[in-house]
């Protein structure tokens, strides 16, 4: 497996170099398609023509600028690309993924569990998994941080979902 690592790393780097251009071209393609849909398929009586032209023109401009300015041959050596940066270590990459999962979990839990329990869950997992604190310290910090949150949000009148605690 060791022999495949450099090749797969170089392939990942190539894909990474093309990623901005591809994402922007995808957005451009979607807007061109949307512009054409509004222009060609919507009843002219709905007066969606201008709405269609707007996204169509923006899509074309985005496609042209992305194809021109985001090619790796253009961005290379400008100092703008992060290719020269050392790659993040696996543990840091794991931290990033856990962090993203925590924001998603917060969105999922906020409505059902309420802001107190959702906050407790997110803060505790962050402290335990990403910050690497022990059980006791994580628990104490979680309680302290969430007590401050509850006090602040209650004092400032921020209305958040109460969830199952009805609080």
């Amino acid at each position: 497996m060791a022999t495949t690592t450099p090749r797969s790393s170089s392939r990942a780097r190539t894909l990474g170099a093309y990623a901005p251009m591809l994402v922007l071209l995808l957005l451009a393609g979607l807007s061109i398609e949307e512009g054409l849909r509004l222009l060609l398929t919507v009843d002219p009586a709905a007066q969606a023509g201008m709405a269609g032209w707007y996204v169509l023109v923006l899509g074309v401009v985005l496609a042209l600028t992305s194809a021109f300015a985001e090619r790796p041959s253009v961005t290379e050596g400008t100092g703008d690309s992060a290719d020269d940066e050392p790659a993040a270590s696996p543990s840091r990459r794991r931290d990033l993924l856990v962090c993203l999962a925590l924001v998603a979990a917060y969105a999922a839990l906020l409505g059902t569990l309420g802001y107190v329990l959702a906050g407790v869950a997110v803060v505790f997992v962050f402290l335990r998994v990403i910050s690497g604190y022990g059980w006791v310290r994580s628990t104490v910090y979680t309680i302290a941080i969430n007590a401050v949150f509850v006090a602040l949000f209650e004092l400032s009148g921020v209305v958040l979902p109460a969830g199952i605690l009805r609080f």
Binding site: Y106, V122, V123, F126, S131, I145
Partner: peptide, 10 residues
């Protein structure tokens, strides 16, 4: 930052 991170996130 281990303590600040979750605060900022919430």
């Amino acid at each position: 930052y281990g303590v600040l991170g979750p605060v900022i996130l919430v």
